Simulated scan of single mutants.
Amino acid sequence: MIVDALGRRFRNLRVSLTAACNYACTYCVPDGKKLQAADFELSAQQLVYAVELLVDAAGIEKLRITGGEPLLSPKFDALLPAVMGLPLSDVSVTTNGQLIPRKADLIVDSGLRRINISLDTLNPERFRAIARSGDLQTVLKGMALMREAGLKIKVNMVPMRTQNADQILPMLDFCLEHGMELRYIELMNMGHLRFGSGFQRDFLGMEDILEMIAARYEFTRTDAPYDSTAVRFEIPGHGFFGIIANESEPFCSSCTRLRLSSNGRLYGCLSNAANHDMRPVLALPHHHAMASLQSTLVKALGDKQDLSFKGEVTVMKFIGG
């Protein structure tokens, strides 16, 4: 097992099926243009083999399928059932939910038990302004289908001071009412936000979010797993919510995440543009691939920040946020 000086190892793998996305969210891209597929993206078969190798070589226990928008990729239909058969303790999907109604049967039939759906507002006009595409009602329909099928749903919201701060409480009310756990994700200093004024203008930290929630609810902080990215809170009699406080309460020192981009690059850290090409390993038989992969994983683990997120120009959607 590969372990660094802080006791970190890779336990969680996030695989980007494609860099393409049917949204162009304001916090992700600067110009409103939808992201396109990357050059030389891996096939579904290659991605499944990559996951198999990383499970064996790094001891990966949990897998999250991401994008871009993973449901937009034709590879999703083949990859999801395949990875559900691997020796993993947890498999989840992160999606903007726009295509869930089309993929609902596939998702349910695969045996998937957990899904993360990104949603930043319940206001249809604001939805279009932030996502710059899509339809709110279709996303809400997808959520309902997943709830009816018994999947556990987490809802990801990025609160922004000038765009959806007034939705912090309505979103929480909605999620509590429907038995879903809301995760507020602090705006990340990445991509086009890295050097502009947008990050400072729109950033809302954990203290700001909790102050708004405290105006309506009493809550207590609960324990979270060692390598959890979220600070989790319980509202007695109602449910839970979390805050991924990458700026307010950094979790780098306990991070166990490894990311595989759709074109075969391994990233050990979101706050480090360093990456490692896994494609040559995928051309090798399993026993040779395992030997070659060990040194790559050592380098990727060495890319992690020790204490806190420093920011990076990399666009998260390219590497499987």
Rank of each mutant, 00 (worst) to 15 (best):
I2T: 12
A5N: 03
R9Q: 11
F10P: 02
R14T: 02
S16L: 08
L17P: 00
A19V: 01
A20V: 07
D31M: 01
A37D: 06
L47D: 02
V55P: 10
A57T: 07
T66V: 01
S73R: 05
P74T: 13
D77C: 11
A78G: 07
P81R: 10
M84E: 08
P87V: 11
L88H: 11
D90W: 10
V93N: 02
T94A: 06
N96V: 07
N96G: 04
Q98C: 08
R102T: 10
S110I: 09
N123P: 00
R128N: 03
Q137V: 00
T138P: 01
L145G: 00
M146T: 06
M146K: 01
E148M: 00
L151C: 02
D166I: 00
Q167G: 01
P170D: 03
M171S: 12
D173H: 13
F174Y: 15
E181M: 05
E186W: 06
M188K: 09
M190V: 06
G191H: 07
G198D: 14
D202A: 02
L204A: 04
M206P: 03
A214V: 11
E218H: 12
P225S: 06
T229Q: 09
E234L: 15
F240T: 11
S248T: 13
E249I: 10
F251M: 05
S254F: 01
L258V: 07
R259C: 04
L260V: 13
S262M: 11
G264S: 06
L266T: 06
L270G: 05
D277A: 06
R279M: 05
P280V: 15
H286A: 10
A289E: 15
S295Q: 15
A300D: 11
K304P: 02
K310N: 13
E312H: 14
M316K: 10
K317L: 10
G321H: 09
